[in-house]
Each structure stands twice: as structure tokens, then as C-alpha cells.
Design a protein around this nucleic acid. Structure first.
Lengths: 338, 338
DNA sequence: TTGAAAATCCGAAACGTTTTGGAAAAATGA
DNA sequence: TCATTTTTCCAAAACGTTTCGGATTTTCAA
């Protein structure tokens, strides 16, 4: 592997000059620069990023810390879409992405900042970690620039991008209300997700503004899991036959709910209306097609990467809130009279 | 950021001793080792991987070079599943994954080996590149350990993992033959994919063994794209009304074909049977559910990572061929008597 | 021609590790 | 006690780059 030294020797100059020639400094004559570049090309030289990073004290690397890279997460390819967005932006820069994964216990033995400092990443993007994750407290304490996805924590070193969860949920519930539903349940995620709290709030706001009483026992947690949601929904609808509509905090859970309804011989949307959240790929393919609140996951990743690079270039951490959109499909209908 | 030097000073020993203590060498007394470890913990030390990599001449990093990280690739989450498999294996090792992306023209300005050498990756996994990609020739020429996915190229430095494409395709076509079909078309990918060639061969073998004549004009290329496949299928089925079944080299193309058939008011599977390849998530959700050849993409990634790490530890490159499985769903039926 | 300014170049230190070859200290055996 | 072995430690070089401060050469105006 040829180094800067080899080039220097071949060109009869010092390593300093080679370095400065290759990096476009002005204090090297065009003649020698040309010679050096030619020789570099001829010797098939590529710079050693490790050495450079070491001395420059920045690695031109960002860490991507996601939780959703599991076998089971392929259905809801939220993680993948976010990653794609990140990748898309980063590809336009001179940074590279290094993948940390949080699912393995192996990595879990290291703390967040250990993970980052060992690899000397310049910044991190975090997605999918729970609010009680020890990593989270570390993020704010550490001085590594960081942008969070769907976690509203901010400091001068950490920004975040999220969607208008409260408003999105509100729109979904209002849609149900407009269809005449009054007995509306909610399948929420879990207490360790900010989005759950926010979507619950949206649910509350919509109901209260419409002067519809809220039945607390009609709000259950499905842990963002299809199976769990199915089980919970089965219980709920057997015990509470008056429910005519349910708002789910994720499409995956909505699928679970629909499975439960099928088992109970309740038709969607004739007997009960279902609305989801996310607009995952499957939403438009299941039958009936799912009414849902769409969020642009690709853009979330893209914006996160953009913000992080901005921060690395000296700008300050921001908050980006993307708009959601209610997509009405076939799983919601007017409430039955009587 | 505390370094090994700081620890040495605090402990009153040399950096050598600190290094050797921390790395578990035997030539340091338990007493001093304990002291050093305590101080390291207390100073919140984490080793600088860059410096280590530089001197050790290995980065404990593998490159992941995928082509499918695009917005349009979310439907067919082949790439994501492979990545998940890779990630799953790597998580158990002390390696990290660095993400290269081939779609950006920015990166494309660098050659394959430049990409790898700059970041000093110890090895690479390549997925989704075409057979005419200039990267490919570089792979074999370069001396970087590499494992390819679905590309049958082998040397002492490069291995690959793939599935039994010929046999898989053969099973799919045989299934159609057993249902009584004789007028069978094929929607292939493109000429720059090995899997296309192999699946075509499987198609041929099945037909020939059953003594069914092959109509070359019934084999068309859909470029692995849903839209392209839809257009091609539309042409094909308007011009050739005798076709009763079609084998597609990917599920995504099968979806496109089904769209075309719907437009032409041909029912699946009553009028024409469709079988796909891959078993993507959507396959079981579309209506009618798609009969297809399932391949375990997660395992492909997992095996690839496993092989690569093996190679980095001195073992030689291998070839791993995974089995596929025909999954019969609703899109295939017996040919109409007519 | 001369002096100053501008243009080129370079030596050496630094970044944070690992490793080599040996030195010093302690333990052991006679 | 002394010689020998074993244990424990260390100085210095090396990895490949960047950069600081200064040195040398060239250019140019007077």
C-alpha cells in the first residue's frame, strides 16, 4: 500500500509538500503539484483515512444507532426507510456512516459514549430507542453532536426531528368522529415512547373538543407489536361490544387489531372502523386497505442527516417537525345507525 | 479525551505497561493491572480505535456495499433483510460495519478499492451490483477479502453466498406444469444479473424435461421493476392470448404482471397462473396471495458475514448455496380445460 | 545591481496506540 | 551467599498523515 512517503521519494520532495499538493494548498508550484498528482495516480495511492483522522481529530464518520434492525422488523420497515433517508443525504457529503446496533447484548456492554468515542465518530443519529434507555441520559450528558428521531430532547449539542404526532392523531380521531363514531377506543404503543404520549394526547384533544366522553378502559397498550395488539384487541372487543371504532398508534398494531376482529366475526369497516398510524407499505395492500396517518420516514432520516452535518459545520442544533397526512382508505366508514 | 498517556502518568507507569495491562498481557502484575484498570475506569477512558487500527494495520471494520438503499426499494426489502442478517452476525463479533453506497455519483467517482482502502476496511460484502459493474472486475483484482451475494465469482480472496436459483426456478415451473399448464411464459430480470441467467436455465430445464416446447418470444425482460414488468406483460398478453401461466423472476415483477392482467380483465389464477420469486413480505398480503419461491434473505446476509469473518481469521473463501422453497398460495391453479 | 517581497519548499513534532528487545527486580535453587 | 530463572517493567520505534515555523529560492521594483 503506497503512502505519502513513497510519493515524496519518487517525486524528490518532502512529505509536507506532497500532503500540501494533494490537499490543494497554494504554497506549492503548479509544476510540482502536477508531478506529485501524476505520481500519486501512477502509484495508485489512496490516503489513509485512519492516519488523517488521528491527526485531524475528526473522522468524517457519523454513527447510526438504530434499534429496528431485527428479523421481526421487516414488516414495518420504518427503520429501513429512515436509514435510506440518512444514507441519501450522507452520500452527498464526504462523510461515511458506521452502523451501531443496539439489539446485541455484546454492544450493550459498552456505554453510548464508549461506542462513539472508540470509533471517534463526529456525530450520531439515534432512532428507535425507548425513553427509559440508559443511552438517552448519556446522549445529553455527552458532548457528541447528536440528532434524535422522534425523541423531543434538545440542547446545544442535540437536536431532533419528529412529526406532528399530536395533530396527526387528532386528525385521525376527528375523521372517526366525522363519520359519526362516538364509542372510540385506542390501541396505543407503550409508555416508554414519546410518540405514544403525543398520539394519546391528540386522541384526548379530539375527543374533548367534540365533547365526547373518554372511557379510560378503552385505551390499551399493544406495545407496537402486531401479536400483542391482536391479543389486547381480542379482549377489548369481547368485553366491550359497543366500541365502533379504534385508533391505533401504529399500522402494525392495526393489522393485529384487524386479525382479532376477524376472529370475532366483526367486519371492517361495517362493524368497526380501524385507523392506523405510519402508512407502512402493507397499509395499502391489506384488505380492507388501511386508513392511516402517513409520515414521511425517508424524509425524517434525510432531515436528521442534514441537521447533523449542519451541526458538525458549526451550526446549532435545531428542531424539525414534519407534517403528517391522513390517508383515507377502506378501513373506516360511517357508524351504523341504531 | 483521556489517553493511555494520562493513565500512565496517573499510575506512575509507562504507556507500554498500560497498554499491556489493558490488553490482558501476562507480563504485568495483578496489582498494577488492577490499579491501571481502576484509573482507566475513573478517567472514563476509551481506547482510540483509529490509533490502534493505524499501528495494527487492521481496522476491525467491514464494508457493506449495497445498491438497494433507495427510496424505491422499500417495497422489495431484499436489501434490508440481507443487511439485517449481516448486522446480526457482526454484532456478535468485535467488528463494526461501515456503509458504502453505490447509488451516489459522488462515491462512484472513487473506485472500489479506493473506497475500501481509504477507510481501511478489513473486508467487504457486496450485494446487488450488476455483472457489468466495473466494481466487479476490481473485486477480483483487489486483494481485499470479499464475499459476494448472488454473484458466482470465486478466488482465494473472494467467496459468495447464493441460493439454488436453477433448482428454485425449476420447481416453480414444474409446479405450473403439474397443474397442466403448457403455454408458460417467463418474465425475467435483465441480462446483467446472474440470477436471471440461472432462473432462466431452471425454466428451460423444467420445460425440456417435460417435453414442452419453449417459445422464445414468451420470455421477456422486466428489469426487476414493477412498472417495467407491468408494461411488458401488457404487451405480451395482448399479443399472445394463449398463455395460461407465467413465471416471474421476482415477486415485484409478479405484482406488476398481476396489475397488467387486471387491466386486461384476465383473472388470476382462473385465466392465468402467476408465480413469483423471492417471497417478499407483500407476496402473502396481495390478493390473490402470490405463489412464489422463497429464499431466506436474512440468512444470506448472516452467512455472508460469517464467511467474511472466517476469511479474516485466516480461513479460505467458500461458496454457500442456500436452499429455496416453493410456497404455494392462491395465484396458481389448474389450467382451464378448453 | 540590490534589497525586499513573494513564492516554494522542508524538518520535525504531533496524533494515540502497539510491539520489540531488553533491563531491572524479585524469586528460586544450590 | 551467589547464580539463575522468572517476573515485571520500560524506552523507543513505528503506523501515515497534517501543520507549524522557518528556510531557501525566485521574482521584481527601484
Amino acid at each position: 500500500m503506497t503512502t505519502i512517503k513513497d510519493i515524496a521519494k519518487a517525486a524528490g520532495v518532502s512529505v509536507t509538500t506532497v500532503s500540501r499538493a494533494l490537499n490543494g494548498y497554494s504554497d506549492v508550484s503548479e509544476k510540482t503539484r502536477k508531478k506529485i498528482i501524476d505520481i500519486a495516480k501512477q502509484l495508485n495511492y489512496s490516503p489513509n483515512t485512519l492516519a488523517r483522522s488521528l491527526v485531524m481529530n475528526k473522522s468524517k464518520t457519523i454513527g447510526l444507532l438504530v434499534s429496528g434492525m431485527t428479523r421481526s422488523a421487516v414488516k414495518d420497515n420504518f427503520t429501513f426507510e429512515v436509514m435510506t433517508g440518512v444514507n441519501d443525504y450522507i452520500a452527498k457529503t464526504d462523510y461515511d456512516v458506521i452502523l451501531f446496533n443496539t439489539n446485541s447484548t455484546k454492544q450493550r456492554e459498552k456505554t453510548y459514549s464508549q461506542l462513539c468515542r472508540e470509533r471517534r465518530v463526529d456525530g450520531v443519529i439515534l432512532q428507535g430507542i425507548k425513553t427509559d434507555d440508559p443511552y438517552l441520559t448519556e446522549v445529553v450528558e455527552s458532548d457528541i453532536p447528536c440528532v434524535l428521531i422522534d425523541i423531543p430532547i434538545q440542547s446545544d449539542r442535540v437536536g431532533y426531528v419528529t412529526t406532528d404526532n399530536v395533530y396527526g392523531a387528532k386528525k385521525a380521531v376527528q375523521h372517526l368522529l366525522e363519520l359519526g363514531h362516538r364509542n372510540i377506543a385506542m390501541m396505543n404503543g407503550h409508555d416508554y415512547a414519546f410518540v405514544s404520549k403525543q398520539r394519546l394526547q391528540g386522541f384526548y384533544e379530539a375527543m374533548e373538543e367534540a365533547n365526547v366522553p373518554i372511557r379510560k378502559e378503552w385505551v390499551v397498550n399493544g406495545d407496537f407489536s402486531e401479536e400483542m395488539a391482536e391479543a389486547r384487541a381480542y379482549e377489548l372487543f369481547t368485553n366491550e361490544p359497543n366500541i365502533t371504532a379504534i385508533f391505533c398508534a401504529s399500522d402494525l398494531m392495526a393489522l393485529g387489531v384487524m386479525k382479532a376482529l376477524k376472529q370475532l366475526h366483526l367486519r371492517v369497516p361495517d362493524d368497526v372502523s380501524v385507523v392506523g398510524y405510519d402508512d407502512i407499505l402493507l397499509a395499502s395492500y391489506v384488505s380492507p386497505a388501511l386508513t392511516t396517518v402517513a409520515q414521511n420516514k425517508f424524509q425524517m432520516g434525510y432531515e436528521a442527516a442534514s441537521m447533523l452535518i449542519d451541526m458538525l459545520e458549526g451550526n446549532e442544533a435545531k428542531v424539525v417537525t414534519l407534517r403528517t397526512q391522513l390517508v383515507v382508505r377502506e378501513s373506516t366508514a360511517e357508524v351504523k345507525k341504531g
